[in-house]
């Protein structure tokens, strides 16, 4: 069993570096995951790992400890509807309102192994020639280097390509590579991956019309949720759209966003001190 003071030390590190909160009943999880890190660093147990951490600052080790505690569960076209809405409602609107600039920017803010941004890319590819002469950036970030490496490689197991991905999409956008499946380079090159910690200030990333921030806030404590969402809202134009996971909400977290009626998981920006509406949700509802 992990010692209470070691649990506290290691949780403290993970929390301050990523916002991820672990309750004491997750001690087994911490122990399991950190054993791999301990061994990699030539230690036999968590005791040794904790001692090394106490021994002095070691950025690389702390980063690996944090990364090991992230949950990276994801799948292609997760929850289906957000991607259908993107194609049928959100993008058509933006194609209209951005027709002068012909530039749309999308951010997948906790992209894990890449299924989310690649799903977006496949949707865009499927929209065909209406996007000719448009520039659409898909910026995908995560705190985990291991996940970003996997995402960039674009190689998925047979199990992964059967979760959420319709067979027609597999046939169209993947090639077999040994016992794995490799995403088409044309899709891969539509996504730009970068390491980014949501606790940091994202201002330098510029503006994003659509943000996917899904299934990451559930792991963070309430003040951190608020901070992340308020930072995200600063990067978004008035008619921007935010997507969150099925188990996530803005209720009690921030007033910068509000749910869009009848579109589960979709949120629009609220401007002017919480009272006003950036975009009437009805605008979206009427499109369906």
């Amino acid at each position: 069993m992990i010692k209470a003071e070691d649990f506290e030390l290691l949780c403290g590190i993970v929390k301050s570096r990523s916002g991820l909160t672990l309750s004491p009943d997750k001690a087994y999880l911490l122990e399991n995951r950190l054993m791999a890190v301990a061994r990699k660093w030539g230690m036999n147990d968590i005791d040794g790992l904790a001692a090394t951490v106490r021994g002095g600052p070691n950025e690389e080790l702390l980063r690996e400890i944090t990364e090991a505690m992230t949950t990276n569960e994801t799948l292609f076209f997760r929850d289906q509807t957000p991607f259908e809405q993107l194609e049928k409602v959100v993008l058509p609107r933006l194609l209209e309102s951005r027709r002068e600039r012909r530039h749309i920017r999308i951010w997948s803010a906790a992209c894990s192994s890449g299924q989310e941004p690649y799903s977006i890319a496949m949707i865009l590819k499927g929209m065909g020639s209406i996007l000719d002469n448009w520039r659409i950036d898909i910026h995908a970030t995560d705190i985990s280097r291991a996940m970003l490496d996997k995402a960039r490689a674009g190689l998925y197991t047979q199990f992964e390509v059967q979760r959420g991905l319709p067979i027609a999409m597999l046939m169209k956008y993947f090639q077999q590579a040994g016992d794995k499946w490799e995403i088409d380079p044309a899709i891969r090159s539509m996504v730009e991956f970068d390491e980014f910690n949501l606790l940091n200030d994202p201002t330098s990333k510029g503006q994003f019309d659509i943000v996917f921030c899904r299934n990451v806030l559930i792991y963070l404590d309430p003040p951190t949720k608020t901070r992340v969402l308020e930072n995200v809202s600063k990067l978004m134009p008035e008619d921007g759209v935010l997507y969150m996971g099925g188990a996530e909400t803005v209720m009690g977290v921030t007033e910068k966003f509000q749910p869009v009626n009848e579109h589960r998981g979709m949120y629009c920006c609220v401007r002017g001190g919480g009272g006003g509406q950036g975009m009437a949700p009805a605008n979206y509802a009427s499109n369906i």
């Binding site: 799948l75 047979q158 199990f159 059967q162 979760r163 959420g164 319709p166 067979i167 027609a168 046939m171």
Partner: peptide, 22 residues
Amino acid sequence: AIKAGADEYIMKPFDSEIIQSK
């Protein structure tokens, strides 16, 4: 299989999650 009129395709081994997804 798809040309012959199949609607979806599962590669074994499968589990309940894959069946559900398909």
